[in-house]
């Protein structure tokens, strides 16, 4: 990946997400079967397969790519993760409106927009054992890296590392949102599938 994300590089990143998600479908399903209903892998695979099909089109700028991801996810994923990832990409795309390419700060703005969008849409707080626990630290790490002058790739890497850590840290806690919340204490010890898929999304370009 280049130091900036232009339209083509954005498309490549999204394509990479599709590949990672397809690869990790079974893993995500297994996590969701344990503390949810066992469909997160299939949901994400279905959504990003549809997204990937759209990537052959023409796009004016990164915003248009990201908005296409958003609307495609909304209309193909379903479940909780569909609207939430849809909102993430929608709000993220709105945060980078008008930029022909995303530098480090641009990537950070996208991630912050996505994180705040997910949080607002799902009404989850940090520590509720949801994908918010991956998005929020990712946004912070991205902003910190961008403030240090990191380029697009480095910002994304910092965000991915933070998301991965955030996903891991969902293990020891009980859930307060999503299906896992029905399990009470029995969710302890298991990783949140949505936090895990968020880490895959942000880490797909590596």
């Amino acid at each position: 990946m280049a130091g900036v994300l232009d339209t083509a590089a954005t498309v490549s990143w999204i394509r990479a997400i599709g590949a990672v998600i397809a690869e990790q479908e079974q893993h995500l399903t297994t996590l969701d079967r344990t503390i949810g209903d066992g469909d997160h892998g299939a949901n994400m695979r279905r959504g990003f397969a549809a997204v990937t099909e759209k990537l052959d089109g023409e796009f004016a700028d990164p915003e248009e790519v990201l908005k296409t991801v958003a609307t495609t996810l909304i209309s193909t994923v379903g479940g909780a993760s569909g609207p939430l990832y849809g909102t993430a990409f929608l709000k993220g795309s709105m945060a980078v409106k008008g930029r022909a390419e995303l530098d480090g700060a641009g990537v950070a703005a996208f991630i912050r927009g996505a994180a705040d969008g997910v949080k607002a849409r799902g009404k989850a707080e940090a520590g509720d054992k949801t994908m918010v626990d991956a998005w929020l630290p990712a946004a912070e790490a991205a902003e910190a890296a961008a403030a240090d002058g990191a380029d697009a790739q480095a910002v994304l890497s910092a965000a991915a590392a933070a998301a991965r850590k955030g996903a891991e840290e969902t293990e020891p806690i009980v859930a307060r949102k999503g299906r896992a919340s029905y399990l009470g204490e029995r969710a302890i010890g298991h990783r949140d599938p949505g936090a895990e898929s968020t880490a895959f999304i942000l880490g797909a370009a590596e």
Partner: peptide, 11 residues
């Protein structure tokens, strides 16, 4: 009807 155990999308 959505997919098995998965809410349908808005469309």
């Amino acid at each position: 009807p959505g997919p098995v155990f998965t809410s349908p999308t808005p469309d």
